[in-house]
Amino acid sequence: MSIREKGYHRWDGRLEERRRGWKPIARLGIRLAFKRKHFKFAFSLSFLPAFVFLAGIYLSERLQDFEGIVRKGAMPLRVVPGYFLSYLTADFVLFMTVVLLIFCAAGLVADDLKHNALQLYFARPLAKRDYVLGKAAVVMFFVLLLTLVPGLLLVVFKIVFSGSFGLLRDHPGLPLAIVVYSAAAAVFFASYSLLLSSLSRNRRTASFLIFGIYVFSDMLAEILRGIFRTPYVGLVSVKTNLKLAAAPLFGTKPVLEVPSVYAFVVLAAVVAAGAWVMNRRIRGVTIIK
């Protein structure tokens, strides 16, 4: 016979000494994103382009079946690296990525700042890089889900539909290009959104900045191009920078007559700014009250 007395009870488990502190942070961030209103709708919608491009691959292989429908002299659809690039940097895909960022990334740091939660994190055996990495992993998860996963699957389906490895034989670097681009985009979007999320203590402001800067930088570039008539103003636009930087990876012609290296520099600058601001904001909260 025994009783459990009222009062405080000890926990007899053992704490893990060596562990990756960023993992629970990333897991919770992803779970919370799915709990947000309308997120699942936006999430499903963002896979639409992948299916369209999949259909494109199917059609390109079965073009002869549709000869009756397709007008004579229509350009046949050619599935080359440029095809994958145009999926990865499609306006709609990039746009939906930014929309998903609003759900999953805007509050990542802003909420913690608003609710004084940083001291809860750092009262635990957690390094600053665990925190940043955990938060960034949330963003990267969604970005990779929209770039890397469909990109590689499209390659696989191309091989399946054509029944040959012709694509890989002609372009052996393609899978690597997809991986590198996806990784770069993930790092960029993580820095971009964490930077903006940590600037504000308000999730809405952060959402507005994430969406606004993406859209308005593009509009601004268009306006400036009308005024200055130089392709270099395209470097103002987030979208154009991504497209410019991706082109050499896939060996295609850039959208603008601007060396890609400039785009790389702009993107790298955003990443650096993100790292710098995060470092300062987190320091600012844990150290000085």
């Binding site: 704490l15 893990e16 919370l32 709990k35």
Partner: peptide
């Protein structure tokens, strides 16, 4: 006052327990 918004107390408490190494 400090908390993490958008979750219940069980999620919150167990999350912070995990961060401590549980």
């Amino acid at each position: 006052d400090c908390l993490l918004p958008g979750m219940d107390a069980v999620t919150f408490t167990s999350y912070l327990g995990e961060l401590a190494g549980m």
